[in-house]
Amino acid sequence: MNVRQVVPRDAIPSIDDPVFGTEYFGEPDDEMIVVERDGDARAYPVRILNYHEIVNDEFRDEPIAVTWCPLCGSAVVYERTVGTRDLTFGVSGKLADDALVMYDRETESEWKQSLGECIAGELEGTTLSVSPASMMPWTTFRDRYPNGVVLQRTDAKSEAASETDEPESIDYDARPYERYFQSEGFGLGAHRGSEGRSWDRDDLDAKTVVLGIKTGDNAVGFPLPWVKENGGVVTTTIGGSDVVVFASENGIYAFRNPGYEFEQTEYGAYEADGTTWDEATGESADGRSLEEVPAKRLFAFAWQDDHGPDAFYSA
């Protein structure tokens, strides 16, 4: 694992006192990290997270860290409770294999964001628990959760808003990683305009969106285009747990499968057990709900860095 200091600690400021509202200032297709419990939903815009990378929040009495690594395209929500302590996380300014390294303010231990594992400090070897969450466009969130709320802007300064290592005032209308997301290269070098890392696969692009699920020692990444090619739905078993993975234009989502046979109709709906199911929420037309699976959404290269080249689902 290659760990390096890139910017000063906290030059990218976490959000520790998040404020939510019903109005959103961005574009309809802006991606949101969404946390939902019993119909209560919160959206955390990537447009905001690009400048902060971590939101320390408490949702329905659950301390969570909503985390985002722009270089890895890695959106993961973690439980902040470790043992008997609730940790709060900040941005260390380091990268581990091009992944965000977080630190906790209670022990100053360092954590690789894409892996959720402590890589240095008092808690080294400890792994954070992934909390169920998903990603979807703003319009999908507002349609599916009309009473949901969205994270609001702050007046903080961030290094991500600057051409130097010195934080500057944030223009949330700007897109600091747009060129990187559109380019073929990946990693810090590609973001900074120099040569990126090499990629030796021809079956999968390095920045293909993957939904990663880990159960015990079993880790499986589901590339979005592969699930689409499989009719938009995959049912499989991971570590003894039956799951169903849906892929659509809205994103890629995973739920526990009660034993149904799902298939996508010619109209794009998902059918099973005599009803239709929403791929983003797991809710059925007759009022039932699938249980969301804790999962990570990230680029293929980051999943491969953490779990190896064979940790991908193949039909």
Rank of each mutant, 00 (worst) to 15 (best):
E279F: 01
K157C: 12
G268I: 05
T88K: 09
D155V: 15
Y253K: 00
R179D: 15
P146L: 08
A11D: 04
T237Q: 10
V19N: 05
W199L: 03
H307V: 01
V233I: 01
A160T: 13
D98P: 00
L87A: 06
E122Y: 12
Y24E: 01
M135T: 07
E117R: 09
A219P: 00
T215P: 03
N2M: 05
V149D: 00
T215C: 04
W303P: 03
Y260K: 00
H191L: 07
I170H: 12
L128W: 03
P294G: 14
K228P: 02
Y103H: 13
W138Q: 02
A156N: 13
S183Q: 14
W138R: 07
E291F: 11
R192E: 15
Y145F: 13
Q152R: 12
A269Y: 04
D10K: 06
A43I: 05
I33W: 06
T140N: 08
E292N: 00
V91F: 12
A133H: 08
F20Y: 15
W199H: 05
D86V: 14
A302W: 03
S14C: 14
E108L: 08
V220G: 00
L95S: 15
L204D: 08
G251Q: 10
T164K: 00
N147K: 11
W111H: 07
D143M: 12
Q182D: 13
T88D: 06
M102G: 06
W111K: 03
A269C: 09
V130W: 07
S241P: 09
D57A: 05
W68D: 05
I15A: 06
G274E: 09
P18S: 05
S158K: 05
T127Q: 14
D310Q: 09
F299I: 07
F141P: 14
G216Y: 09
G216Q: 06
Q152H: 02
V245F: 00
V82T: 11
S158T: 11
F222V: 01
L204R: 02
C69K: 07
I54E: 14
P225D: 09
L115A: 12
A174C: 13
N257T: 11
T276M: 13
G93L: 11
G90V: 09
G21E: 13
E27V: 09
A120F: 00
E178D: 09
W303F: 02
G251I: 08
G240P: 14
A160Y: 08
F181N: 10
E291W: 01
T208L: 05
D155H: 14
D61S: 14
G73D: 05
A269R: 10
R144C: 03
D217K: 14
T107S: 04
T127C: 13
D205W: 01
N2P: 01
N147C: 07
L123W: 12
G125T: 04
W68N: 11
A247I: 00
E263N: 15
V19E: 10
G259C: 04
N218C: 06
G282F: 04
E159G: 10
